[in-house]
């Protein structure tokens, strides 16, 4: 299952969040050599904050993390406007109903190929479920040459915000996808997902229980 972690419930997910930041270091810095910082052995950037929404796939709050992604409200600082605006022909979509998805991170030991594609499908389904829950209409993201075609044919209605730029695998493109019930049904259908795969443990609810 994929946990939706927000400011409200993140205190229940300290272990999973810590593991997610460790995995991001192992994947983006050690494996892919992205120029990011990991000052405490954890990949944490300017955009990580309690206000970010994290999707973390794990069977429980202390179970092994198998994948994660980060969603940023576009009413606050986010990458597409700050760093990747040149990938957009027009102003990057932003507002109360737009999220930006970043840091899709399979666990470092996840098998390549089909298992990672299946994880991407589950994460996209989770983005849509969380989006529906929070009243989000559109999700923007930047994809490289490997990820962009997979994201385009994941089942949601996705479109390019501008031409791809750069060379080789690091040829980057800004994309946007609509969040709606029909898209969610198609994503589930294409990925063999029979029903909701996210869990949102509300902090207050958990304490009351």
């Amino acid at each position: 299952m994929i946990h939706i972690v927000t400011a409200e419930n993140r205190h229940q997910f300290h272990h999973a969040l810590m593991e997610m930041h460790r995995q991001r270091k192992a994947v983006f810095i050690d494996e892919l050599n992205w120029r990011l910082e990991a000052p405490e052995g954890l990949e944490i950037d300017l955009y990580d904050s309690p206000e970010a929404i994290y999707l973390i796939e794990a069977d429980g709050p202390r179970a092994p993390v198998t994948g994660s992604a980060r969603l940023l409200p576009t009413t606050r600082a986010h990458l597409l406007s700050d760093v990747f605006a040149h990938l957009c022909d027009a102003a990057p979509p932003s507002g109360a109903h737009v999220w930006e998805a970043t840091r899709f991170c399979p666990a470092p030991d996840a098998a390549r190929g089909a298992p990672r594609q299946a994880l991407l499908g589950r994460i996209i389904a989770a983005i849509m479920e969380a989006g529906v829950l929070f009243g989000i209409e559109q999700v923007t993201f930047v994809a490289n040459a490997g990820l962009a075609p997979l994201a385009m044919k994941a089942g949601w209605r996705a479109r390019a915000l501008g031409r791809a730029q750069g060379k080789g695998r690091e040829r980057l493109q800004a994309l946007a996808a609509d969040i709606d019930a029909a898209g969610l049904r198609r994503v589930r259908g294409l990925n063999g997902i029979s029903g909701p795969i996210t869990r949102f443990a509300s902090g207050d609810f958990a304490r009351a229980a």
Binding site: R10, H11, F13, H14, H15, L17, P39, E40, L42, D48
Partner: peptide, 16 residues
């Protein structure tokens, strides 16, 4: 050593 309730990763730099 991280305790049973975990440590918020955003606070690790405080410990540093």
């Amino acid at each position: 050593v991280i305790g049973p309730d975990g440590v918020d990763p955003l606070r690790v730099r405080d410990a540093h």
